[in-house]
Amino acid sequence: MSGVSLARAATVAALIGTVVGTGLAAPASAAPNPVCTWQAQAVAAPAGLDPQYASVTGADGLGGYSGYYAPNSGDITLLRWTGGVPARLAPPAGVNWVFPRGENRSGTILVDGMNTATGAKQVFTLSRSGSYHSLPVPAGLTNPTGAAINNRGDVVASARRSSDDRNVVLLWEALSTGSGPRVLDLPEASFPTAADLDEDGAVLVSGGYEVFVWRDGVTTRLPEPTGAVVGRAISDGLVIGTSYGSSARSYVWDSRGGKVAYPERGRTAEGVNRNGLIAGERVDGPASVWQGSTFLAELPALDGRPGRPHLVADDGSVFGETFEPGSVPVQWSCR
């Protein structure tokens, strides 16, 4: 799932009108060591480039991660980090604007692409070896926008239906014998927008301040809290997000069992992995991690600069960015 802070991603992705989600995929590993110490380190930008314009949007859960370098919304370079060292990736043929949306365990990156001269948009997967594959979009649908890719290669995206100008969700199933995606209309949702994708193919849908999970043809609405809510990520059935009532607070929803819990003093929840490790911010400000709804630790500042997390990899790494003063990408690890 949806990769970049949400604020930075919203600015960069304004060209295609969507907020990045996070698409994480990796096998479960041991739960975080309760006696380890969280440490912050800067994520390197390509040599000679200003790190404030780099962001991480996906991780393979095995130590590798991917993202972009963007000094402005029209100039975006795809990046892949191996051993902490970034490499620039070429865009697909015929495309001059790209944006990464997530990465799975095999190192396949989900990429939005556009030819700005024609306005034609496509959704691609990019293999670790460097091969692009364009995902087919049914006739009558426009503005495809990727959201997440899972381990087995399923991809979820959003699109606009020309006949009635309504949003729909597209699900390309890697194990399907068909060449095109499944089109999910979700009449229960006023503005269905793909947010993330679980390993079992369950789709997190969050749009119009509503949250749903589509699983095996059944759509289930977040049972609580009521009011304006957003869903950020889903992993192993757990959905995390934020409620914007009289004051913001985070929630974690077991979408299989139905139970909703509230992370201790959690204000936002931005990322979750298959072990239930959640990253977000507390009501009193600091970036923090929880195990389910149980508070674990505050995430340390990098060189005195606090951070905002947005992505949790299945190896337990947390990615985000610093602020006040200046924004640079940061990785937190518990050792």
Rank of each mutant, 00 (worst) to 15 (best):
V203G: 02
G17I: 13
G102T: 09
T37I: 06
P286G: 11
P329K: 06
L141N: 07
A44D: 00
P34G: 09
G207M: 11
L277R: 12
L311P: 10
G140D: 08
V260L: 04
P192Y: 01
V168F: 10
G227E: 07
L238G: 01
P329L: 10
A148L: 11
Q41W: 01
G153D: 09
A297I: 05
A87L: 15
D50Y: 02
D185N: 14
G3E: 14
G178E: 10
F191S: 15
A297L: 04
Y68D: 15
L277E: 00
N150I: 05
A287L: 11
V155M: 13
D216Y: 09
S176Q: 06
K121T: 12
G21D: 01
G146K: 08
A195F: 00
H310Q: 09
V211P: 00
P309Y: 07
V12L: 15
G304R: 07
V20A: 14
D50G: 04
C36L: 09
H310V: 08
V98A: 03
T18Y: 04
L49C: 01
L238A: 05
A45I: 05
M1K: 10
R256A: 14
N273G: 12
V43F: 01
V56S: 06
H133K: 13
Y209D: 13
S333C: 02
T294Q: 01
V111Y: 06
L49D: 02
Q52G: 01
T268E: 14
V168E: 05
G153H: 08
S73M: 09
Y262E: 00
L222P: 03
P181Q: 13
V330L: 08
G276W: 04
E321S: 15
T145C: 08
G320M: 03
S288M: 10
G94L: 13
I76A: 04
Q41G: 03
A174F: 15
F99G: 04
G178K: 13
